[in-house]
C-alpha cells in the first residue's frame, strides 16, 4: 500500500531481552540509579572527608552554589534532549549574554541590561529553532555552528576584554546576593528546577515534548505541531542559557566571553546522568538536578581530597561513564 520505506526494526533480539527482564518488574531500579549514586557518593565523601569539613553547612551550600548555573542550563537541556535534539551552543550563549548584559547595564542601566541579556537568548534560540524545525537541519550542526558564532561575537564586541558590572542592584539580584540564609544563585536554581519539573511532567507542552522526542511521526499524526515543539524547546534552551550567563555576570560582577565555556558538556552530562534518554522520549528534570549535583559533589570532594585539577578531570570522567553505564537500559 504505502511506498514509504520502513525503518528497519531496532533488532528483534534487543526488544525480546527487555521483555524478558521487565516481564513483571514495572519498577526498574535503573531509573533511580542517579539517586542511589548520589547518596552513595555523598556518604563516601562524608565518611572519608568528614574531618576536612565536607559536611559543614558552608561547604554544602558551596556545592549547591557551584552547581547552580549548570543545573539551570541543564533544566532546559532536559527538554531539548527529551525532544531528541541537542543544543551545543548554550555555553557560548551564556558567555555572549554575560557581556551584552554587562555592556547594556553600563550604558543604559539595569532593566535594559536584563532585557538585552534575555534578548540574546531569544535571538540565538529563535535562529537555532528556526533552522532545526523550519529547515530540518540537524540540531547538532546548527548549534555547533552557533557555538562558534556566539563566542566569536562575544569576543569581538568586547575586544576580549572583561566588562565590569558596577551596578550593586544587578549583582545583588543576579548571583551575588542572599535570600535569608540561601545564596541567590541557589534560589534561582530552585525556581528553574521547580518550574521545569512541573512543566515537563504536568503540562500539555511537556507531554508533547516527550511524544515528539519518542516518535515524531506518531506525534505529528496525533495532531501535535512537532515543528513548533522543536522550535520552542530550542528557544527555551537559548533563553535559559542567556539567563545563566547573566547569573555568571552577577556572581563574578563582570561579563566575559569565557563565562560558560564548556558548560554544554557538563549540562549534557547532568541530563544524561539524570536518566533522560539521549534518543529522546523520556526525561526527568529532578533527575537532571541530581545529575548536576552529583557532578558538583564529585568536584568538591576531589578538591577537598587534595587532588589537582588534572586528576579531578580523570576521575570525574570515569564516574560519569560508570553512572551512565549503570543507568542504561539493557
Amino acid at each position: 500500500m504505502t511506498q514509504t520505506t520502513k525503518p528497519p526494526a531496532t533488532g528483534g533480539a534487543a526488544v525480546a531481552t527487555t521483555e524478558r527482564r521487565g516481564w513483571f518488574r514495572t519498577l526498574d531500579w535503573r531509573r533511580y540509579v542517579i539517586y542511589i549514586g548520589f547518596v552513595v557518593v555523598f556518604i563516601f565523601f562524608a565518611v572519608l572527608l568528614g574531618d576536612q569539613g565536607f559536611l559543614s553547612p558552608n561547604n554544602l551550600l558551596n556545592i549547591l552554589r557551584q552547581s547552580a548555573t549548570i543545573t539551570i542550563i541543564a533544566v532546559a537541556m532536559t527538554y531539548v534532549i527529551a525532544c531528541a535534539e541537542i543544543d551545543l551552543s548554550v555555553g557560548s550563549v551564556a558567555g555572549l549574554a554575560s557581556v551584552v548584559t554587562a555592556m547594556a547595564v553600563a550604558n543604559w542601566g539595569v532593566v535594559p541590561g536584563v532585557l538585552a541579556g534575555l534578548a540574546v537568548g531569544v535571538v540565538v534560540g529563535s535562529i537555532n529553532g528556526a533552522l532545526v524545525a523550519g529547515l530540518g537541519i540537524p540540531s547538532f550542526l546548527v548549534t555547533l555552528g552557533m557555538l562558534g558564532i556566539a563566542v566569536g561575537t562575544a569576543q569581538w564586541i568586547t575586544d576580549s576584554a572583561p566588562q565590569p558590572i558596577l551596578s550593586y542592584a544587578y549583582n545583588l539580584a543576579f548571583g551575588s546576593g542572599n535570600l535569608g540564609p540561601f545564596p541567590g544563585l541557589v534560589v534561582w536554581m530552585a525556581i528553574f528546577v521547580a518550574v521545569g519539573a512541573i512543566v515537563l511532567a504536568k503540562t500539555r507542552f511537556g507531554r508533547q515534548v516527550l511524544a515528539t522526542g519518542g516518535n515524531r511521526m506518531a506525534a505529528e499524526f496525533t495532531g501535535i505541531n512537532t515543528k513548533r515543539i522543536k522550535f520552542e524547546v530550542l528557544l527555551i534552551s537559548g533563553v535559559v542559557a542567556a539567563f545563566a550567563g547573566m547569573l555568571y555576570a552577577g556572581r563574578l560582577q563582570s561579563g566575559r566571553f569565557q563565562w560558560g565555556a564548556g558548560d554544554e558538556l557538563s549540562a549534557i552530562a547532568a541530563v544524561i546522568l539524570g536518566g533522560t534518554s539521549l534518543f529522546g522520549g523520556a526525561g526527568s528534570v529532578i533527575g537532571t538536578l541530581f545529575g548536576a549535583l552529583l557532578i558538583a559533589l564529585i568536584n568538591n570532594g576531589l578538591i577537598l581530597a587534595g587532588l589537582d585539577a588534572s586528576q579531578q578531570q580523570v576521575i570525574r570522567g570515569a564516574i560519569i561513564i560508570l553512572a551512565v553505564a549503570l543507568a542504561r537500559k539493557k
Binding site: 511524544a211 506518531a218 523520556a282
Partner: peptide, 24 residues
C-alpha cells in the same frame, strides 16, 4: 494510520500516555 508502530504509537511510552496524547 496503517503503521501503528511508526505512526500510531510512541512505543517506549506507557499505554496510558499513548491513550491520553490526543486528549490532553
Amino acid at each position: 494510520p496503517e503503521d501503528r508502530r511508526a505512526q500510531g504509537l510512541v512505543l517506549e511510552h506507557s499505554v496510558r500516555d499513548n491513550l491520553l496524547l490526543p486528549l490532553l
